[in-house]
């Protein structure tokens, strides 16, 4: 009887080509679907319809503040006014005014309320800049310090 040799001395080589094909296809898929998403954040606004006319009487530590923003040509920012007083420094001055009025007092921060009255044609990015100016600021370490949390809009102005 003839006995076959059980042990072969040759190396078994794995076929790498299909695996590399698949791996490269996967890589291309992930590269093509990769998208850098910008960090987004929200400014919360609570505006129940009823509170426009009938609000509960709350103790107000600071008088309600009204920010009037007007638009020039092309919806660009024309002027900013706080309680009827024009702020020539724009949103930077608005932020400084808010810092002076609100400060670090947590109670005042909670009760303070700002109403925005904007022109119809004003570019929306100006509104966000104004809301940022009154909402708070970032410290050098990157932490957000809040100023005014209650933000609302006045009745829309006619336009368009």
């Amino acid at each position: 009887m003839k006995i076959r040799h059980q042990h072969q001395s040759e190396k078994i080589e794995l076929e790498m080509t299909p695996m590399i094909d698949i791996v490269f296809q996967l890589l291309i898929f992930f590269i093509m679907t990769f998208k850098i998403v910008d960090v987004e954040g929200d400014f919360n606004i609570k505006m129940p319809l009823a509170s426009v006319s009938s609000g509960e009487m709350e103790e107000e530590l600071v008088p309600p503040m009204k920010v009037r923003i007007t638009a020039g040509g092309g919806g660009q920012l024309a002027s900013v006014a706080l309680n009827g007083r024009t702020l020539f420094g724009g949103f930077d001055e608005l932020h400084t005014e808010m810092m002076n009025l609100i400060g670090d007092d947590a109670q005042i921060q909670e009760s303070a309320e700002v109403e925005f009255d904007c022109d119809y044609n004003l570019r929306y990015e100006n509104v966000i800049a104004a809301v940022s100016a009154v909402s708070g600021y970032r410290t050098d370490s990157g932490e957000v310090v809040k100023l005014v949390e209650k933000i609302k809009f006045a009745a829309p102005r006619p336009g368009g």
């Binding site: 606004i45 904007c118 022109d119 044609n121 570019r123 929306y124 990015e125 829309p156 336009g159 368009g160």
Partner: peptide, 15 residues
């Protein structure tokens, strides 16, 4: 909202 949208539109949407 798009940054160049008119504020009146945003307010109308909220309304």
């Amino acid at each position: 909202a798009h940054k160049a949208t008119r504020t009146g539109k945003v307010q109308a949407l909220i309304k």
